[in-house]
Design a protein around this nucleic acid. Structure first.
Lengths: 251, 251
DNA sequence: CGTTATCTTGACCGTCGTCAAACAGGGTGG
DNA sequence: CCACCCTGTTTGACGACGGTCAAGATAACG
């Protein structure tokens, strides 16, 4: 019903973690929004910026990354449609990392103060935002584990499993396949590997029948086997746990 | 003046990011607190728990860690006195990782609901807590970079630099030295290395005059050189930035 | 249809893991 | 006070996972 609303994807995302009714949706859609289309590789936030707006990804894909002193890049998160690109700037003044588009993307900008006011005025939305931030922090922790303690195959398999679940939760995948918006070099930047080694491992996963590829689309005939290779445990995504516990309170 | 209060360390920590006056301090100290002393290696939170309390570290050191399917451990964060051990449980129902003491430690437990109520009742304290959570998320991002893109020497040097600043901010170090509460194996678990390789790198740092050691105490004669090796940029700690921007508003 | 980005493959090498053993320190108990 | 143990540190030999360099094959794109 709200699908024509620019922030419909954000509503869907927030509803993964809190129960938001029609009135909450109206509050959300009343936010002043500026939508911008950004080409692949474009910058949304640069380290050192003092953002005045809060960005929401509407379509396409973006990533957070940092560049070390000697020029190596590490992607620390990937956003899918509906994700709040800078929750942290509701609380922090200076950007500590970059956000860049992986594909052509639509990004909505909401003034920081408007978002802060809404969170204060509507506690359930404020809660939903904070839960989203807590879940993202949990994903960061899992990424530390991923690059710190899994081998190349496992890291890539884990990344694929995480996307599968997150895309699914946003209705962007049927659970069997999805379009992976990343080059092998970018996968390397996300897993702490080089593009050469990513290629070796991807081909190895493919040779073992754990994934099949067609252009940028990835398919997993046996997600259970892939999870096994990844050592994947979905708990860290906290899918749905809050939506259930809160629903009775204000439905 | 409040040094006899159990939560004095928390107040000091929150004041790093927000301006809190005497009334805010009184609100904080009015929280119902149970203090427990826990031996080194004791568990504070286990993955899968549904915590009813919010833990605050008063003295000693704790760490967050996860264990992979094949038994490898990855430490994803270390807490120093004043740190909120489970901010995330203000928003999430199930613990997605473990928290364990590194040393003998004093931990204060505040009922989750009491903490939530305080945050709602006193927005400045709520803000301070959320800023603290945002800074911790920023630290997680930097840790992903650390294990993903730095070599062994750099990872350990970076860890040492981070502690130096954080300990300093809490008044636990003079900026020249501090007691490192971790064994080399634990340093390995935090940096994604083995204890053997940690030893090699620590000795290498020592041989190059970047650090000196005496038991568990670490001293850095030339912090600038150490930062250079670490590729350390303190921005991600967001030290003081909010305290300054907010002070005029309600001082 | 040329140009560029991305993928793929091979050869070689270094960082770091593995395995194993020796060593130092601190605590306990006889 | 010393023997004993346990934990943590240190060192060496060896091997492997993954990095580096370089070239060729494909695919994307204007």
């Amino acid at each position: 019903m709200h699908d024509r609303q620019p922030l419909a994807a954000l509503l869907r995302k927030l509803r993964q973690h809190a129960y938001l009714g029609e009135r909450d949706a109206d509050d959300l859609f009343a936010l002043p929004v500026t939508t911008r289309s950004i080409a692949a590789g474009g910058h949304v936030i640069r380290e050192g910026d003092r953002p005045t707006d809060c960005a929401v990804l509407l379509s396409g894909f973006t990533c957070r990354h940092k560049v070390t002193q000697d020029g190596a890049r590490q992607i620390v998160a990937v956003q899918i449609p509906g994700d709040l690109i800078d929750v942290q700037h509701l609380y922090l003044d200076v950007a500590d990392h970059n956000v860049q588009t992986l594909t052509q993307a639509e990004v909505a900008f909401v003034p920081r103060t408007a978002m802060q006011d809404l969170a204060a005025r509507n506690p359930e939305i404020g809660r939903a935002i904070n839960i989203g931030a807590a879940v993202e922090a949990s994903i960061f922790r899992e990424w530390v584990v991923n690059v710190g303690r899994r081998d190349g195959r496992g890291r890539i398999a884990h990344l694929l499993c995480e996307f599968a679940l997150r895309m699914n939760a946003q209705g962007l995948s049927d659970g069997q396949a999805y379009d992976l918006p990343m080059t092998q070099e970018q996968i390397g930047d996300a897993t702490g590997l080089t593009s050469v080694h990513v290629n070796r491992m991807v081909r190895s996963l493919e040779a073992d029948g754990l994934i099949t590829r067609d252009k940028r689309s990835v398919r997993f005939p046996d997600i259970t086997a892939l999870r096994e290779v990844a050592g994947f445990n979905a708990r860290y995504l906290h899918a749905g746990e809050q939506a259930i516990s809160r629903r009775p309170l204000n439905a």
